[in-house]
């Protein structure tokens, strides 16, 4: 047994080298493994958090053969990723910024996919008395009462919508009552709940979280609160390395009748209402 190979130092060294080699190979092998079939989809945290993409993306991967990497970031960063060619296709909801993105030539195709809407939430006691107002009237009252208001403050689609409401009201929100959180929708709902504050939220996130928090839905249904989502392919003429083919296929996929039907049904079982209303099939 003394000279058994299994116990020799050489064998042990070999074993260590093999393990280290396998480990490093595993790390770098996966990291640098690029194949043509990858498609990077940059989208917003609110879309991602809704869980819709968890349903749609595997279907697309199966039918198209592409491997989709979903990167969930703010709309600002998603558009920036498209601008720099770091993403192939975008699913975003900030119409004005999107139109600028298209006008500057960074996008190739842009199509409506679906919409949901924003709602104004607040403490159940509604200290500023905004219930029954329209969106602009409501935030005017909040500002007049100096009731705490949580702003996303992160350049996201939701934040941009909020800023457009303040602009429509002719108010520059400022003061200790106006709190800029700089975080995602779920975190901001939590902060508003903790601080008894008002906030603007997308309906999907609100439906997902409403059981957890004491906030109340106070204003809804105003056309100003609509939240349209568009899919945009990054222009391969600007960034030749992007997966333009895959991006166009994704656009066709997500605007196709069966997928639009799936979008309408998404969330109905869990929340009793649709989280998103499909838009691609309307004339």
């Amino acid at each position: 047994m003394a000279h058994c190979f299994l116990w020799s130092k050489n064998f042990r060294n070999l074993l260590v080298a093999a393990v280290v080699g396998l480990y490093l190979g595993g790390i770098f092998g996966c990291g640098s493994h690029t194949d043509q079939a990858a498609l990077i989809l940059a989208t917003t945290t609110s879309t991602y958090d809704s869980g819709l993409l968890d349903v749609l993306v595997p279907k697309f991967e199966k039918s198209s053969g592409y491997r989709v990497k979903v990167i969930a970031v703010g709309t600002g960063e998603a558009l920036r990723m498209g601008q720099q060619g770091d993403a192939d296709v975008l699913l975003v909801h900030a119409p004005e910024a999107e139109e600028r993105f298209m006008a500057e030539g960074f996008g190739k195709t842009r199509k409506p996919v679906m919409h949901n809407d924003f709602v104004l939430l607040g403490p159940p006691t509604d200290p500023a008395g905004i219930k029954g107002e329209d969106a602009v009237g409501a935030i005017k009252k909040i500002a007049a009462a100096q009731s705490p208001f949580i702003s996303r403050g992160d350049n996201s689609g939701t934040h941009k919508k909020e800023l457009s409401l303040w602009a429509a009201a002719g108010i520059k929100p400022k003061g200790t009552w106006y709190i800029e959180a700089g975080q995602g929708m779920g975190e901001c709902l939590r902060i508003a709940h903790e601080k008894n504050a008002y906030l603007l939220a997308d309906r999907g996130t609100w439906l997902a979280f409403r059981k957890q928090f004491s906030l109340k839905l106070l204003v809804e249904g105003d056309p100003k609160l609509l939240n349209p989502y568009h899919v945009i392919t990054v222009n391969p003429e600007v960034h030749p390395h992007v997966n333009g083919q895959g991006a166009e296929e994704f656009v066709q996929f997500i605007t196709s009748p069966p997928i639009q039907q799936m979008i309408r049904q998404f969330g109905q079982a869990e929340y009793g209402e649709s989280l998103f209303i499909p838009d691609a099939l309307q004339p």
Binding site: G74, G76, E77, L79, R80, D154, N155
Partner: peptide
């Protein structure tokens, strides 16, 4: 947290 947020907003 400011770095994280500026990155999210695309202001690298």
């Amino acid at each position: 947290t400011a770095i994280l947020q500026e990155t999210r907003m695309g202001r690298f």
